[in-house]
């Protein structure tokens, strides 16, 4: 375990070196929220409720959703894994007494800490500025369940990224796959706009994928649109997906490694 802890702290320090890069990423995304807040403010000037959402609920969906989105992001590990496979740099890991998958998980954990600090700082400023426009839910049970859901969401997204990255054992170019799947997963999670603004079919279909449990369901719990028990069920589904994805990764790794050519050795 200590070796993975070392990887986490190394990655954390490495990311601290490029603080401006991470801050600029979050700062850039801040403009996305500003445009979302502005556009929904304009829309709500003409109506009081949209598909069951009041103005404060929609603002909460956008602002709290922003933190969820970035707290559970893993910043493109598909590309890194594909590179490791194609350039043969994965060989360095394979010959060492550590698991490559766990190594990637450790790197991701180290990376998310710095991003999380900057996101939380921006969020606190936003909550301070917009506290009268949003719904604040301080129910400890809800917050605890949300935290558990978000940790599970982070790992679901990460394992999904790893799974896509491992496709590179068979395909040379996978940029299209992860580009398209990232758009699809973001849409299916409700990060573009609340899923229930779409026809009910979309919501029903999205329940068969893990993504809705990583964003939309935790937010519904926060907004008290679903009960605590329904939230717990959501966490259960997330855990099931985690197992399923982990098993899939093990399977793909097993067969993929046989195709690995260790380029450059």
């Amino acid at each position: 375990m200590r070796k993975y802890w070392k990887i986490i702290t190394n990655e954390f320090q490495k990311n601290l070196t490029y603080r401006a890069n991470i801050i600029s990423y979050n700062f850039g995304n801040l403009f996305e929220i500003i445009s979302q807040i502005t556009i929904w403010t304009v829309i709500f000037q003409g109506t009081n409720m949209i598909k069951g959402y009041t103005y404060p609920e929609m603002m909460t969906y956008i602002i709290i959703g922003w933190v969820i989105l970035f707290a559970t992001s893993n910043y493109g590990f598909e590309e890194r894994i594909a590179k490791d496979i194609h350039q043969g740099t994965m060989s360095n890991m394979i010959v060492k007494p550590i698991s490559y998958i766990r190594y990637i998980i450790a790197v991701s954990m180290g990376r998310v800490v710095v991003a999380l600090v900057s996101v939380v700082t921006i969020e606190i400023a936003m909550l301070y500025l917009l506290h009268d426009k949003i719904i604040l839910n301080f129910n400890p049970a809800t917050l605890l369940l949300m935290l558990a859901m978000l940790i599970a969401a982070f790992f679901i997204k990460l394992l999904f990224s790893i799974l896509i990255g491992l496709i590179a054992f068979w395909f040379i170019e996978i940029s299209g796959t992860y580009f398209s799947l990232n758009i699809f997963s973001k849409f299916m999670s409700g990060a573009y706009f609340p899923m229930n603004l779409l026809p009910i079919t979309f919501v029903n279909i999205s329940l068969f994928f893990p993504f809705i449990y990583t964003f939309f369901i935790p937010l519904q719990l926060y907004l008290k649109k679903i009960t605590f028990m329904e939230g717990l069920r959501g966490l259960g589904v997330e855990i099931l997906w985690l197992f399923l994805l982990y098993l899939l990764i093990k399977l793909v790794w097993h067969f993929g490694l046989k195709k690995y050519e260790a380029a450059g050795v």
């Binding site: 490029y18 401006a20 890069n21 991470i22 600029s24 990423y25 700062f27 850039g28 995304n29 801040l30 403009f31 996305e32 445009s35």
Partner: peptide
Amino acid sequence: STDASNFWYVIDN
């Protein structure tokens, strides 16, 4: 800046 890969997010958004 050695790593400015995320600077484009500012402009993209």
